[in-house]
């Protein structure tokens, strides 16, 4: 997987890995397999990123033009963008023409792994969205949302990660939240 950068919606991710990282029947070896397709996609993304960067850099507004021999705000990023684009193209050629890199330092993707990752991401994004509201009012009191949603986040994560014991699901979220609230909220006085 993983040929995408952050601009691509995460929903598109799971389609790809099966082709490249699908569990090999041979077994025994738990390492990821080299993949030419993966290398080509990665290099193409690098080309796109560097091109985008270069285009954006050339549009930077300058408050003042620099004097001769002086650096303006565009000079350095333009150099970087040009260099980056050159190397990204070079890498693309390498990816197209040479044997793909070994990936024996990486482990193979497992069934359910992508789901586990996306579920965690979704949970954290939801958590942050609610946390941003900060407080809610009930019975004439302002309640700090953080202390209510943090145990819920942890509960959700534990469920995704396969915890099933009753004690784990109750105690861990509560104890962790209490610890964080005491250390950060009360002791360090960070506005949670």
């Amino acid at each position: 997987m993983s040929h995408q950068n952050d601009v691509v919606p995460p929903g598109a991710v799971p389609a790809l890995p099966d082709a490249d990282d699908a569990p090999t029947p041979s077994g025994g070896h738990d390492a990821a397999q080299p993949s030419r397709k993966l290398e080509i996609i990665a290099a193409s993304v690098a080309v796109v990123v560097m091109t985008t960067f270069l285009v954006l850099v050339l549009q930077i507004d300058l408050r003042r033009e620099a004097d001769a021999g002086q650096m303006d705000a565009r000079f350095w990023p333009t150099v970087l963008g040009g260099l980056g684009l050159t190397i990204a193209l070079w890498r693309l050629i390498v990816a197209l023409t040479q044997t793909p890199d070994e990936r024996d330092d990486l482990e193979r993707l497992q069934v359910g792994g992508v789901t586990r990752l996306l579920a965690s991401l979704a949970l954290v994004v939801g958590y942050m969205a609610i946390w941003e509201l900060r407080t809610f009012v009930m019975f004439g009191y302002n309640f700090n949302l953080f202390v209510f949603i943090t145990p819920l986040l942890l509960l959700g994560l534990l469920l995704i990660y396969g915890a099933r014991s009753w004690k784990a699901l109750v105690f861990f979220p509560l104890v962790s939240t209490a610890f964080i609230y005491l250390l950060f909220g009360m002791l360090l006085r960070i506005p949670l």
Binding site: G140, Y141, N142, F143, F146, V147, Y181, G185, M186, L192
Partner: peptide, 11 residues
């Protein structure tokens, strides 16, 4: 106790 659960009266 109220401060511990992170709430305060609404003014």
């Amino acid at each position: 106790a109220i401060a511990l659960v992170g709430c305060s009266p609404v003014s």
